[in-house]
């Protein structure tokens, strides 16, 4: 595998130059979202599926008028679903909405306070969706056994949380992420928990294949600048992982030679 290949994120047979996936929630307006998307370099962007507002101005642009599915890969999510049935139903609506679109982000939540995944319902939904021909990128806990099980079911990417959704607490359990990576044969993408650029770098330095984030960019004081910071953080974390860090030492190791000292 050459470096170029290693620097491409491949999901469901499609190569992406960017390893950053961003969300479209919590932005001031569509324009700010689009500018953040452009600055982030992300090629995949998540969306939610919700009821249309009846009586809304028919000429008002919608999200997909501003963020074009012709230019970006739209990743519909199942946010807000607390059981497998609702999640499967949401994915089917998304497939119809986007014109036979197979790539989805499955998330089945278990609890409103933590938004932790309901893993048993996630497994049920993943089985149904994979059988139904979907390419499933799945949000899950950082449990290595569950991550492997989701891969075995046929999910195209497994996306463990770094910390609760929207918390910005960073990668709370790098050890578990490492254990997941050790056994993975599909892309592992940290989804949720990143708060700032260094968190994204840490995820990538662990060897993750990508990072998915929404709030870290959208709730930054300057979202479009943070989007640019995240692009660099993901790239530098990836390069750092590929480069291989120096060993840690207990004591100092001088960088300037002793030989040739004239004092």
């Amino acid at each position: 595998m050459n470096e170029q290949t290693q620097n491409t994120l491949t999901v469901a047979g499609v190569d992406y130059q960017s390893r950053l996936i961003i969300g479209s929630g919590k932005y001031k307006d569509f324009q700010e979202n689009l500018q953040a998307l452009e600055n982030s370099g992300a090629e995949i962007i998540t969306v939610a599926i919700r009821r249309v507002n009846l009586g809304q101005n028919a000429d008002e642009p919608s999200l997909l008028d501003v963020i074009s599915p012709d230019k970006y890969t739209i990743l519909p999510n199942t946010a807000g679903c607390y059981n497998a049935d609702d999640a499967v139903r949401t994915c089917r609506m998304a497939r119809e909405l986007l014109g036979d679109h197979k790539l989805v982000k499955l998330e089945v939540l278990g609890d409103q306070k933590t938004l932790y995944p309901n893993v048993t319902e996630t497994l049920i939904a993943a089985e149904i969706l994979v059988k139904d021909g979907f390419d499933v990128m799945v949000y899950t806990s950082d449990d290595p056994l569950i991550a492997k099980r989701l891969e075995e079911i046929g999910c195209v990417a497994v996306m463990p949380l770094g910390a609760p959704i929207g918390s910005g607490l960073g990668i709370r359990n790098p050890h578990n992420i490492r254990l997941i990576l050790e056994n993975a044969e599909v892309p592992i993408i940290v989804d949720a928990g990143v708060g700032t650029a260094s968190d994204a770098s840490i995820a990538m330095e662990l060897g993750c294949d990508g990072v998915l984030m929404n709030t870290a960019i959208a709730e930054a004081k300057n979202p479009t600048l943070m989007a640019s910071a995240m692009k660099k953080a993901v790239e530098s974390g990836r390069e750092s992982f590929l480069a291989g860090r120096m060993p840690r030492r207990q004591y100092a190791s001088a960088s300037s030679p002793i030989d040739g000292a004239f004092f």
Binding site: S24, I49, R50, R51, S62, L63, L64, L97
Partner: peptide
């Protein structure tokens, strides 16, 4: 009937 669209979400 349920009529849905894509909106902002993470």
């Amino acid at each position: 009937l349920e009529i849905v669209q894509a909106i902002g979400g993470g």
